[in-house]
Amino acid sequence: MPEDPINASSKAVPQINLRRRLVNAAVTFAAVGAVILVLTPLVAIFGYLVYRGVGSVNWAFLTQTPKPVGEAGGGMANAIAGSAFILLLASLIGVPFGIGAGIYLAEYGRNRFGDAIRFTADVLNGVPSIVIGIVAYGIVVLTQRHFSALAGGVALSLMMIPTISRTTEEMLLLVPNSLREASYGLGISRWRTTLSITLRTATSGVITGVMLAFARVAGETAPLLFTAFGNQYWNYRIDQPTAALPLQIFTYAISPFDEWHRQAWAGALVLIVLIVVSVSAVRIAASRGMLKGAN
């Protein structure tokens, strides 16, 4: 039978279309499914965290130190304070170095050497946190012959530096060059221009970067295991082992006691609230007015 080209194609087209449409629908369905599947653990984690945590966060939890095994009550006050202490130390080291390096990269580092620094910062950013812990152990704990808050702070600061320097660089590069020119045109020296004009204009962006780095290290546990080490009691000394919230959560989570499990959830809730609040605050601030008015 002679083939009729017109009829043949008119028959074939709807078939192909149907198959193609089906594939299209299936893929759309799969993508929606993926979104739901990914959102489920998120909802589950937050939901469970709130469900288990809310009942356990109380005044005692926020003001007392841990009770010995078997006794009910007690809290994580020393761990919360210890985390604050360690994070303060980390920020005192990490923020100036990070911003300084960011300034170098943005204002002086548009060359091969700057590229090398950028590359190294990215490498540092990818170093597993447990390895950072080993390094902080080697340079601080071994020299001090003590686990200490300082060692924990150093470990976390090493993790903050690359993040802060890269975001600072990005934010400074967003500042239009015309502002630098205006400043040079007034006879203002380069360092003054960088600090009082460029950095000042980029302030909100730089703060965003600092807060993100802060939020990232606030929940870090691995680098504290053998640096800050943990402590059942209050510690105000920089050269002594110090409790930290994530460490305490870890210790309690893998313990066999229900009471400690309860407290681990409470600690987790406190930690996540601190982190989410700082991340969202930063996001809102950033969307409101990063580089306000600079065009």
Binding site: L179, E181, A182, S183, G185, L186, I197, T201
Partner: peptide, 20 residues
């Protein structure tokens, strides 16, 4: 250069007030 620029005012093509 900084010294020279202190004594010469300059106005640019696009207005560039310091936004902050």
């Amino acid at each position: 250069a900084v010294y020279v620029r202190r004594h010469v005012g300059m106005v640019f093509q696009k207005a560039n007030p310091f936004p902050t």
